[in-house]
Amino acid sequence: MTGVLTLYRSSIGKKAAMAITGLLMVLFVFVHMIGNLKVYYGPGGTPEPMLDVYGRFLREMGYPILGHEQGLWIARLLLLGAVGLHVWSAIQLTERRWTGRDVKYVQQKTLQASWASRTMLRGGVIIGLFIIGHLLHLTLGYFVPNFKDGAVYLNVVSGLKGIAPWLYIFAMLPLGLHIYHGLWSFFQTLGWNSQRSTELLRGLALLVALLVVVGNVSVVLTAMMTTLPS
């Protein structure tokens, strides 16, 4: 146990914390995207839309070993902890980075660093704001006309109208970049990257990032263009 603290006290340890919590979030985001694809089943289905069935599964996860919504709350707390530690480490590491160079260069060239790697902080902040907005919107029902608990499909289709879908689509750009650099970075930070595997790992990160972005954007566009019979 003291090992964890020894590690976390160092800059490498904080980075490892970012990597592990980041990977947890990448896995979540990926599964979440697959879940979102249920929008394609449309409003029909028996007896309710597929997206609602999926939503109910999330609430009943682990039932009957766990009670109603208990599995969901465990997952939520785990994710909240991950986001919290990720952001906390980000703040501490960023403070180090900002004080590392007190006088700036008059001229500085970037030799090869990717755009994704240079925008991790900015992107992360936008993603953080998006997460808050997204929870207020489709989980709590702010700005969703006729929001009804459990009627996931109806909420999504009526919520993603006007400017909202464009904000969702806009947020996928920093998310994709963050995953592209972050997932490769995860392996480097934990010491599992090497010249022999780096191309493969970059490819994997690109694939996951693209799948998440394309999947989610297509879902948002579909919801946006769906009109409900009133």
Binding site: G3, S10, I12, G13, A16, G191, N193
Partner: peptide
């Protein structure tokens, strides 16, 4: 990457 790996191991071994 190697050093990260060493650092993680060493932290746990040496506490």
């Amino acid at each position: 990457a190697r050093m990260n790996c060493d650092m993680i191991k060493a932290s746990f071994v040496k506490g």
